[in-house]
Nucleic acid binder design. Structure first.
Lengths: 191, 191
DNA sequence: GTCTATAGAGTGATAGAC
DNA sequence: GTCTATCACTCTATAGAC
């Protein structure tokens, strides 16, 4: 049982990388069996709903990771400045310094967005909202915090697009550097 | 002959919307024949290289439009402030206020980026470079101009991703509003 | 008549579901 | 592995311009 849960989770992680690289439409079952080492039988045992359920599981896995590692500290960490810094570091690591794109962003741009609308929207809404809370706790007025948060989330997505387009990870690094300045607390005595 | 050229251009425009909506992998020939009204015979007469050549023609068409309507004024307009304003207005119109995504960005995130690497990279490099020139002509030091330009191009792409993800065009509008402020000239007596 | 543009059935390969 | 549907693409017959 525990083995099955672990195997399924491993499969979801591998599936994530395959979907990330090939997109939803471009991910074939042949690619999946090759990339996961799982036969079609196992695949349909883990994911009776087929490709659709696999993609949903991947989105849930990603959202779970972000919720725990990024969103929760932004909302709850007693030190919001540290949480924002940790967000930028965590994002840099997660996206491999610009060498790894955002699967949720890829899905957002595709037709599949509609199929996974709630998950895609939830991921970005949660991110923006959690960051906005942290910024407000740093002393920014609520409307400024919301604007800054939206700007930051969108800059990260855009940086991933541009970095991949021109094949230069430094584009992403520079974008994060700018965010480090832009998201700096407005007052030094911030909790 | 003129009729053929016009028909081909019309076909390219329609193809662009299909690729934009469905992505490269998701665009089937069935979709193309339905969306263009052209049979496979005509399609393979216009584009002997098949889907690949169709996508290349679409990218060239987009790049041509941007080069003429956006990049050239940024580099050559005697009034760079006006050119930057026109860029933001032109972009707002082109992307339908956030309701239409960037095909080149979609391609950049997909596997097809490698197949069209030169075109994808050229589009973004040209955009960033042309905007950087205009900003420098507005009085920004060259390194600041380059940084601002990269930030703006990336923000537009990110805004398109986020606006579509949360299904809210106002995200895009707000991003453009921020850019209008951020790209403002550093001195009022700017040419 | 010639010739080019076209429609659309037909090709083998491969898709996802089971 | 087996299934049917669909994939990108080819090819042939023909419609229409000259």
């Amino acid at each position: 049982m525990a083995r099955l849960i672990r195997e399924r989770r491993d499969a979801v992680r591998r599936l994530g990388e395959i979907f990330r690289r090939h997109g939803y439409e471009g991910t074939s079952l042949a690619l999946i069996t090759a990339g996961t080492g799982l036969g079609k039988g196992s695949l349909y045992n883990f994911f009776p709903g087929g490709k659709d359920e696999m993609a949903a599981a991947v989105l849930d896995d990603i959202d779970g990771w972000f919720a725990e590692a990024i969103f929760r500290p932004l909302r709850r960490d007693p030190d919001p400045v540290a949480a924002i810094g940790a967000m930028l570091d965590g994002v840099a690591a997660y996206f491999d310094g610009g060498g790894r794109i955002c699967l949720v962003g890829v899905f957002a741009l595709g037709e599949v967005r509609d199929r996974f609308a709630a998950r895609v929207q939830g991921y970005f809404a949660e991110w923006t909202s959690a960051l906005s809370v942290a910024l407000a706790r740093c002393g920014h007025p609520p409307d400024v915090a919301a604007d800054l948060a939206e700007d930051a989330v969108l800059a990260i997505q855009g940086a991933l697009v541009l970095a991949r387009a021109v094949d230069d990870r430094m584009v992403f690094g520079r974008a994060l550097d700018r965010l480090r300045i832009r998201l700096a607390p407005v007052n030094a005595d911030c909790a």
